[in-house]
Design a protein around this nucleic acid. Structure first.
Lengths: 246, 246
DNA sequence: AGTGGTTTTCCATATTATGGAAAGGGATGC
DNA sequence: GCATCCCTTTCCATAATATGGAAAACCACT
């Protein structure tokens, strides 16, 4: 039903992404379990098309052709998310956002604003560091290399509530994994609180969705109940947009 | 030397991207020249992995899995661009940027700042609309659906110099195609001028590189000569990062 | 120079993808 | 409400295509 060689080529691309975009042939072999000869041949093909690039030290890296295709895809996904974000707005009364991780940044790719007078607005396209946002936390909670990300970006203080210690942050991420949602209590912007839930493709967290609003309004909601509702919506979206088969 | 089915799968992905991220099976067939049965089977595979999604009207669209992989690739490309951007800084004395189109936005993916005291700074990660920037113009000049983009985004006035009419903008894009570079004369920010050149994968424009600085300094340079120099650098980079084979 | 760990190439084999043609769906017009 | 047209999906016999083990080449250390 599926074309084997294409499936395997995608495995290789994903293995490369998992390793941060760069890996040697044997690392790919370890991760995918495919025989060397096969991987090498598949890599040649991806190389010819610019989907993979070979560094001077013979290691392989994700290539430029993916940027264009990925960019177009990102626009699509943002569009599909809107009905789901709308449900989140209905459920919470607050502005809903979707964001993905791009390199070490959180990028907002879609938004549906709250109907209220006082509301969060126009985040689409914004790039922020993950440590001070609720979506950032759900996105990193799933990644084994979260500590490495903090090593590169640091945890700059944005407000008096920002978590600036790596240990405390890792503990926070553990808590997020535990309860399945993340909060931002004025850590990015004073007076703004958010609750974020993960969007999964059934295997890994690929995006986050959140609602954000004035601290008092968010705090007035029942977190666990709200989180349950949002998770449901996010799961539906994940299944629709990313799921399919596997 | 290359795995046929993988090659074809990539053709399909690219055909989809060419059509703005969405197409019917027969449109893909028209574009790629592949037989229906083959395309369908390949699409099934991509569907199973979330690289393609099927809309309710049975059309196909680029899928969510590309977002993650594309995001990682984007980080890589930004890194490789730096030596080339450095050359641009040496040539022009001004800050150099690289940007790509993501959905309808221009996203800056890499920067090398000018050594001067007064300089442009820290644009990486910023997302702006294409109409008011030089890179945006070179990126759109290559796209047949530029008018559709403006339909969605509008051409909001950023300064008194911003081009806000679609006709004038399309004329500008034609001029850009003609001379091979684009200018921004304070259209995004007063007093800031830029000159941008396209980065091509040998077939299509995939990114833009630009230098930006204070109006007086940029205006003092010989545009055509500078553009020639920048093009050379951009071409080298395009060949290295996106080219390879085909 | 020697050694260990890679990456790359090769080639006979049968597994795997191929594509033409026919069946199935949906929409549009009469 | 029915027929028509166009687009999508399925099928299957064929051979072209991808496979993967093993050997060779390469590189980086020491």
């Amino acid at each position: 039903m599926s074309v084997q060689s294409v499936d395997r080529a995608l495995d290789i691309l994903e293995a490369l992404a998992d390793q941060g975009g760069e890996a040697g042939l044997s690392e790919i072999a370890a991760r995918t379990g495919l025989p060397y000869g096969t991987i090498h041949r598949l890599l040649q093909t991806l190389l010819n098309r610019g989907y993979v690039r070979q560094e001077s030290d013979r290691r392989y890296a994700l290539g430029g052709s993916l940027v264009r295709v990925g960019g177009v895809a990102e626009g699509m996904v943002g569009g599909w998310a809107e009905p789901y974000l709308t449900k989140m707005v209905e459920l919470s009364g607050e502005t809903a956002n979707m964001a993905v991780l791009e390199g070490d940044f959180v990028v907002y790719v879609a938004q549906v604003p709250s109907p209220r007078r006082l509301r969060m607005f126009a985040e689409v396209g914004r790039r922020v560091l993950p440590h001070s946002t609720a979506v950032g936390k759900v996105l990193l909670a799933d990644r084994a290399d979260a500590a490495a990300v903090f090593g590169r970006t640091g945890l700059p203080r944005r407000t008096e509530h920002t978590i600036t210690s790596v240990e405390r942050m890792l503990a926070e991420l553990a808590a997020v994994r535990e309860c399945g949602y993340a909060m931002d209590l004025g850590e990015e912007e004073l007076g703004v609180h958010c609750l974020a839930v993960p969007v999964s493709d059934g295997d890994r967290v690929v995006a986050g969705m959140s609602v954000s609003g004035p601290a008092e309004r968010i705090d007035a909601l029942d977190r666990d109940e709200l989180a349950r509702g949002l998770r449901k919506i996010a799961d539906d979206f994940g299944a629709e947009a990313f799921g399919s088969g596997r």
